[in-house]
Amino acid sequence: MKINRDLCDICGSCVAVCPADAIVVSEFIVDIDNEKCTNCLNCLKVCPIKAIEEGE
């Protein structure tokens, strides 16, 4: 998964639905660990601003 940082509002919704604990939020940035990611697409679907896309 890939985050479009121009769109991401750092709201953390994606973390709540990630079954793999692959997403980390800090004050100014959200990061997806593609090693842990299982491609379930939950984060992409829940993102209110569609800042998450498939791909690395």
Partner: peptide, 22 residues
């Protein structure tokens, strides 16, 4: 909502898509 503390402690905190309002 972005909680990870529970996960660190081994608690299952993940919610289903139908259980989060975006």
């Amino acid at each position: 909502v972005e909680s990870r503390v529970g996960r660190w402690a081994g608690i299952k905190t993940v919610v289903r898509l139908e259980d989060i309002d975006t």
